[in-house]
Amino acid sequence: MRNGLRIAAVVFAAAGLMTPVGAQGAPAVPSTPTHGAHRPSAARVVPVPGTVNARDVGGYRTVDGKTTRWGVLYRTESLSNLPPDGVTALAGLGLGSAIDLRTAPEIQADGPDRLPAGVTTVPLAMDDNSLFAFIGQVVRSKDPAYQQAQLGDGKAAARMRGLYRGFVTNPANRAALGTAIKHVAATPLPVLFHCSAGKDRTGVLADTILRAVGVPASTSEGDYLLSNELRAATDKALRDQVKAAGYMENPDLLIPLQRVETAYLKAFRNQAVASYGSFGKFLSKGLGIDASTILQLRTKRVM
């Protein structure tokens, strides 16, 4: 799983297998953008063929009674394997830019984003703490005892917690997070951001943005955990294929890497406070986000 980690891409690229197709297809989104418009909560999941974890970050209430705007900020998984109708669906969102949080090895393995004409890629790699290489190596070993030793007995979850702490302690990761937030604050056009699975790096960026504009931490956590529901069928298909291909006798060892967990998000949040004293100081001192940037962010992304 890389970081943000579409495990499918890591395992299958590393092992020379095919990445499983999403569990269910999706119709194209309407061709008319709805920038800032109110939309029903059922519209949170954005139907982009070729994805299973594409969503609108609108509709969340802030502590001062406002609401994040629909149709101006989106989070997804990798866009490197979109079919033509998936690209058409993205075009209907009216995007100005797409922030890609993947590392160079991930992009090399999975391919660059497939985006509509006129959408600018903003590359802001966040380090994966060597998970991309590690998981590929463990799966390719085909050694059940070695796989158990590396991933079993809570070791996989511990690696994930370490990954999330690294989003704070790694200066390059803080720089990428800060630059991404400044970009979202500065541009008036709809923005999309993604990593590989759209759950870890994407989840941390979404959590930071939502909390920065005043969405309660518990509400933001709910957005983060939604990845488990949306990715469940695809992740199960991956495990089934890894076992069928003879790479793992116990593919359930991958589950802690495929899922998001409250404990992972807490590792990120707690490290931010431990390193900087508070979430606000993490924003200002850790990410370089000043009050004027927060005001810009709220003006463009909250109604």
Rank of each mutant, 00 (worst) to 15 (best):
V213S: 07
A212H: 03
P171V: 07
G203E: 08
I181P: 04
A186M: 07
G203Y: 05
L163W: 07
R165F: 02
K182Y: 11
G222M: 08
T187R: 01
R165A: 14
A172Y: 12
G162M: 12
H194N: 15
P190C: 03
A180G: 03
V191I: 09
N170W: 00
T179C: 01
I181K: 09
H194C: 09
T187M: 00
R165N: 05
A157P: 12
N173P: 01
N173F: 00
P216D: 15
C195R: 03
G222F: 00
G222Y: 00
C195D: 08
R161K: 13
Y224K: 10
F167Q: 14
S220G: 15
A180V: 05
K182P: 06
P188M: 04
V191R: 01
A158G: 13
L189S: 15
V168S: 06
G214F: 04
L210D: 05
A206W: 04
G222R: 15
G166V: 04
L192W: 04
G214W: 08
A157Q: 15
Y224M: 10
V191W: 02
R165M: 13
A206L: 09
L210V: 04
A206H: 06
V168D: 08
R174E: 09
K199S: 07
A180R: 00
S218V: 13
T179Y: 01
N173T: 03
G162P: 02
T202E: 00
E221V: 09
P216I: 12
T179M: 01
L205F: 11
T208Y: 06
G198H: 08
V184T: 00
A186S: 15
Y164H: 05
P216K: 13
L163E: 12
P171M: 06
R161F: 01
E221I: 07
F167D: 13
I181M: 15
K182L: 08
V213E: 06
T187D: 07
H183V: 10
Y164Q: 05
A175W: 03
V213P: 01
K182M: 11
T169F: 06
R201E: 11
